[in-house]
Design a protein around this nucleic acid. Sequence first.
DNA 1: ACCTGAACACCGTTCAAGT
DNA 2: ACCTGAACACCGTTCAAGT
Lengths: 228, 228
Amino acid sequence: MTAPARRSGRPRESVLTRELIMNTALRLLDERGEQGAGIREIARELGVRPSALYNHVRGQDDIIGGVRELVSDRIDTSGFGVLPWNEALHRWALSYRNAFAAHPPTIALLAVRPLEPGLRTNHMYDEVCEGLIEAGWPIERVLTVIVSLESFVLGAALDEAAPDDMLDPGEGAGLPHFRSAYVARARELETRGISASGLAFHTGLDVMLAGLSAEFAALVAAKSPLVR
Amino acid sequence: MTAPARRSGRPRESVLTRELIMNTALRLLDERGEQGAGIREIARELGVRPSALYNHVRGQDDIIGGVRELVSDRIDTSGFGVLPWNEALHRWALSYRNAFAAHPPTIALLAVRPLEPGLRTNHMYDEVCEGLIEAGWPIERVLTVIVSLESFVLGAALDEAAPDDMLDPGEGAGLPHFRSAYVARARELETRGISASGLAFHTGLDVMLAGLSAEFAALVAAKSPLVR
DNA sequence: ACCTGAACACCGTTCAAGT
DNA sequence: ACCTGAACACCGTTCAAGT
């Protein structure tokens, strides 16, 4: 098996790496679900004693932070500056949600913990801020817009990670409106070939961007008296 | 202290109740944070051995489910049927978020776990469905609208539970746009006397309801050729 | 510097033994 | 029926001892 045939003392060459630990953690998370990221689990997979990890990693929180960086590296900010702000936001939110959806077990793990100010994360925010500021958004509104959109993305990712039958009126009597809405949606989902959480995500995203566009248009109109 | 002066054997009258356990769990959660809901922690607070809880509760998941019911009982569906659908949704979302915000440590705990189909929760969904259906929303859209709004509410609650300095460009160089957006928002927050997460929530909620109202108006217009 | 091995202080849960 | 007490199978983390 993976029993450590290694005896005590420093090995001739290092077996572990910080990067190797993080990658293994993410892989186990995907393969085995939320409890796959345990120190002992990772150690066993790497053929090593749990305590060995502490030579490369500060502890469990450090590992989770590393996994988060791996996942959020997939967030796409390339639209800002080249596309209209609302399309750039759309691409950003979509890739944000897809990054987490690609690793469902990480969502519950990562969404909950506050992200310590990582350099790469902060750089991502800087790029989004730049895009919105250049597009003409009032600077004091920028972070509020970002955070509200981000809240939706994370909430939608959580919904995606939940089991499909979570929202279900069941078989019994009662709940007539819930039930009829449920079957009507099921039919809709089948004909469109999309998941319930996927449709809710796209709907919410479109709705938010439509609302933001309306606010933006009103701001522009108020600033340019010509249109009045 | 709270050392159990009780000796073995069945007590003359029951010390525990399912309800008492749930209430204690919620209180400890509020007082001590996320790890307050541990079986051993609750048992100590109640002056009882951990194993005693298992006479009234199936286990930890059962307790968390009970806490969720306590919290989500505060969700207000009274607007449906009496207010316009968008105002009823606004009241619902606001109370939904406030219910969790009143117990910050529960957010991370509850948002992550799929809610097993509780009767009271399902009844809540039934009321919201009824309100939207009666207002004239296409029945196959109803659940999608609810879920997308709910995703935002939960995401915003998560954001609320996170530490305030989570999003912070820091002191160093670089990140100029992030930094200037940050100080501009800080000034805005101070003059309006509101928290960052509070403003993001209200902004997102307004934006979503504006977007939904636009979609609804378009649906109504498409159905009544008179306006064409 | 980087591993093993033992130990520590925790968990949730089960179950026989008591009354 | 409902509690105690002991036990079980887990955690993450620390640290001396090895090479």
